[in-house]
């Protein structure tokens, strides 16, 4: 198999796809540093005088700093609530073998399937009646809930990899369930917690549908703000491109830095179900 096709051909095809993957991003970067007159040129201009005016304008004058703060508050809030809850639950479930535990896990999987739009309507009604539309807690609560099934399943896969003999040894040493968990198991599950936190962060930072409804002028997140720019306005092309790049960069660099962990999180799901 490894010698079936020549290496050069494989490299060529992979490069082609990599180009397909990266072109839209490069194009957007170019738009964001072009003057509008250049951005609309046909054929596209490859050489031009770059400007960072739009990057400056979108962050400094168009309130993107504020939206970034909102996004950060919501994403971190989600991680700090969702991951501990999910970790506890996942530990319990990884050590339970009863039928009920198994049904509960299946139940979580079914909940993971629910169309988000279906959840959004009652969320909206409840948040409305509690006067919580356009507040951080509403959005964080929604994100935590949406995130729970996945968090539990993912963390459980990590706990399953920690041998049970350790729990048993700890019990013999006089630990109860709680101290076994905190003193023996949790330290070993650190990589899993990193991975799970990364996924929760990604989910909350990227979320759009819920943010569109549950956030408002006070708590608007970056995805909602950028959709309002680039969704329609070609006049604001350069500006929205600058905004889009600005939203992408922090999370992209962060995630690429932790890429090894991400890949592990994705693949552990595939193997353990």
């Amino acid at each position: 198999m490894r010698r079936l096709l020549g290496q050069p051909l494989v490299v060529f095809l992979l490069s082609l796809f990599a180009l397909f993957s990266l072109t839209p991003i490069i194009w957007a970067v170019l738009i964001s540093i072009k003057q509008p007159a250049d951005a609309f040129a046909i054929p596209p201009k490859l050489f031009f005088e770059p400007t960072f005016r739009f990057h400056y304008e979108i962050w400094a004058e168009r309130r993107f700093v504020e939206f970034f703060a909102n996004s950060t508050i919501i994403a971190l809030g989600t991680v700090f609530i969702s991951v501990p809850l999910g970790t506890l639950s996942a530990y319990g479930l990884s050590r339970l073998e009863s039928k009920m535990a198994r049904s509960y896990l299946m139940g979580l999987l079914v909940i993971r399937m629910f169309p988000h739009i279906l959840l959004l309507i009652p969320f909206f009604i409840v948040a409305r009646s509690l006067s919580m539309i356009d507040t951080y807690p509403a959005m964080i609560a929604a994100m935590v809930a949406i995130n729970q099934p996945f968090t539990v399943w993912l963390m459980r896969s990590f706990f399953l990899e920690i041998p049970r003999e350790l729990d048993e040894a700890a019990t013999i040493d006089g630990c109860n369930a709680w101290t076994t968990f905190t003193k023996v198991i949790l330290p070993l599950a650190k990589p899993g917690i990193v991975v799970t936190s990364l996924f929760s962060l990604l989910l909350a930072y990227n979320e759009f549908l819920f943010a569109l409804i549950l956030t408002g002028s006070n708590t608007k997140t970056l995805p909602v703000a950028i959709a309002e720019y680039g969704g329609e306005d070609l006049n604001y092309w350069s500006l929205s491109a600058a905004g889009a790049i600005g939203i992408m960069l922090p999370i992209l660099l962060f995630m690429l830095f932790f890429q090894r962990h991400l890949v592990r999180g994705l693949t552990i799901g595939a193997v353990k179900g």
Binding site: L22, A28, L202, Y205, A227, A244, M248, L252, M255
Partner: peptide, 19 residues
């Protein structure tokens, strides 16, 4: 390299393609 699009915020990704 190929993994990058998967990490982009979906709204932003859609904008990229819109352009």
């Amino acid at each position: 390299l190929i993994f990058v699009p998967y990490l982009i915020t979906p709204v932003v990704a859609a904008l990229f393609l819109r352009w």
